[in-house]
Simulated scan of single mutants.
Amino acid sequence: MPAYVVLTREHTHDAQEMERYGEKAKAAREGHDPQPLAFYGDIEVLEGSAMEGAVILRFPDMAAARAWYQSPAYQEARKHRFQGADYRVFIVDGLTEV
């Protein structure tokens, strides 16, 4: 069953750190092949706190999503995200495709 990693950027503190994060996060996707379903497009918050942007990545399953997130390459990228902005990040199981 597919799994989705959802990242919501709530507030940017340091644009330069976010640039570094973007470069390293892109490289960290190699070998994990997530399918981007949404990537910082136009956003409209209907309920809850404001956010600046969102990303949704589809993986084949929870294990693949965790493997990407816990990979050394993404952990290195993540350091820059922590310094650059406030995010909420979670993995959610998808539905079995019909």
Results as ranks from 00 to 15, higher is better:
Ala73Asn: 12
Ile91Ser: 04
Gln70Trp: 11
Ala85Ser: 00
Ala85Arg: 00
Trp68Tyr: 14
Lys26Thr: 04
Arg66Asp: 05
Ala65Gln: 09
Glu30Pro: 09
Arg20Lys: 09
Tyr21Asn: 00
Ala27Asn: 11
Val5Thr: 00
Ala77Phe: 08
Gly41Leu: 05
Tyr21Pro: 02
Ala54Trp: 02
Phe39Gly: 07
Arg58His: 12
Ile43Asn: 14
Thr8Phe: 02
Glu10Asp: 05
Gly22Met: 01
Ser71Phe: 12
Ala3Met: 10
Ala28Cys: 14
Glu76Trp: 09
Val6Tyr: 02
Ala38Asn: 05
Glu44Ile: 11
Ala64Cys: 15
His80Ile: 07
Arg29Phe: 15
Ala25Cys: 09
Arg20His: 11
Gln75Glu: 13
Ile56Leu: 15
Pro2Met: 14
Glu76Arg: 10
Lys26Met: 06
Phe90Val: 11
Trp68Gly: 08
Tyr4Trp: 13
Val55Leu: 12
Val45Arg: 13
Gln83Tyr: 00
Pro34His: 02
Leu37Arg: 10
Arg81Met: 06
Gly84Val: 04
Gln16Val: 01
Glu19His: 13
Gln16Met: 03
Glu76Cys: 07
Glu44Gly: 10
Ala38His: 06
Ala15Ile: 00
Ala27Trp: 05
Gly53Glu: 04
Glu47Met: 10
Val89Phe: 10
Gly84Phe: 01
Pro72Thr: 08
Gln83Ile: 04
Val55Arg: 05
Val92Asp: 07
Met18Arg: 02
Ala38Leu: 10
Ala85Tyr: 00
Ala28Phe: 08
Gly31Pro: 14
Glu23Phe: 05
Leu95Lys: 14
Ala54Lys: 05
Arg88Ser: 10
Pro36Arg: 13
Ala50Thr: 11
Glu44Ala: 12
Ala63Leu: 15
Met1Lys: 11
His80Trp: 08
Val98Trp: 12
Ser71Ile: 11
Phe59Val: 02
Tyr87Ser: 07
Phe82Asp: 09
Leu57Asn: 05
Pro34Thr: 02
His11Cys: 00
Met18Ile: 13
His32Met: 13
Glu52Pro: 11
Glu52His: 09
Val45Trp: 08
Leu95Ile: 09
Asp33Gly: 15
Ala50Gly: 14
Asp93Thr: 07
Arg66Met: 12
Val6Asn: 07
Ala27Gln: 13
Val98Ala: 11
Ala15Leu: 03
Arg88Phe: 12
